[in-house]
């Protein structure tokens, strides 16, 4: 059988296209397709913080630092607790010494001592990654090292992060930082290594007052979902359109 030059070229082209196809299909697998492939769509992790219950002991911060191996004395933390004082003259003062790790034992706040009689109201607000439904941190990562899992948790690939810091700039909540040892972007993961094994997060387990709860928002019988559905809850900074998934009970308008 003799083949013409033209036929030969055509078949070569076909082979080339055919062999290139699976490769490109592999390359352009979008997060949505990956999501469908993994089929974990019946879980969406969410969190509740009850600010009425928080006493500012900082146990959650301690537990988190140890569980997630953030050097204990490094000036960064995956979760933290803020103290707010609203004074009778309407002024707001707030602080979070060491992220509230050692509790709030000092009367001094923002370098001034506030007399108890000046205080109109005071409370603590624990913070962590909001595992946003529409996370700007994922959007801006130039290499895709930060990604959203099918069950709604935003994670960072430590082997792929180039350490540009763009995601740190893009998060409106200031939850991201560089890992002091690994020198890559770092943040709260809802203790993904624990929750995916049926455990609670370290902070939830450590809180003696039940101020923190984690649950599956896709399960209508989950206590967390029930609270969010039936009680008055709020999220932080919804004006950024990030759709945060950490819900707060008793969130005051002064909370930043």
């Amino acid at each position: 059988m003799s083949i013409s030059r033209r036929d030969f070229l055509m078949s070569t082209l076909k082979v080339a296209v055919a062999s290139a196809l699976p490769l490109s299909a592999f390359k352009f697998l979008s997060p949505a397709e990956a999501k469908a492939a993994v089929e974990a769509a019946n879980v969406r992790w969410g969190f509740i913080v009850d600010t009425y219950k928080c006493v500012g002991c900082g146990f959650c911060v301690k537990a988190c630092k140890i569980e997630n191996e953030i050097p204990y004395d490094a000036p960064v933390t995956r979760t933290w607790v803020e103290r707010y004082l609203i004074l009778k003259d309407g002024r707001m003062v707030a602080d979070t010494p060491l992220g509230g790790r050692d509790g709030f034992t000092e009367l001094k706040i923002q370098d001034e001592v506030i007399e108890p009689k000046e205080v109109a109201k005071a409370y603590f607000v624990p913070k962590l990654c909001n595992q946003c439904e529409n996370p700007p941190c994922v959007q801006v990562c130039p290499v895709g090292a930060t990604y959203q899992t099918a069950d709604g948790v935003v994670l960072i690939d430590r082997t792929w992060c180039i350490g540009c810091g763009y995601c740190i700039m893009a998060c409106p909540y200031g939850v991201r930082f560089f890992h002091p040892v690994y020198k890559v972007a770092e943040k709260c993961t809802f203790c993904y290594h624990r929750i995916s094994k049926g455990m609670k997060t370290a902070c939830v387990d450590a809180c003696p007052f039940g101020a923190r709860k984690i649950g599956n928002l896709k399960d209508p019988n989950d206590p967390v979902t029930k609270t969010i559905m039936t009680e008055r809850v709020a999220v932080l900074k919804d004006e950024y359109g990030t759709k945060p998934q950490v819900y707060y009970i008793g969130l005051d308008e002064n909370v930043r």
Binding site: P142, G144, G163, K183
Partner: peptide, 15 residues
């Protein structure tokens, strides 16, 4: 960059 050796990833695996 905190990880300058990985800088090339911006060219190879752009997001």
């Amino acid at each position: 960059l905190q990880q300058p050796l990985r800088g090339m990833e911006v060219f190879f695996t752009p997001h």
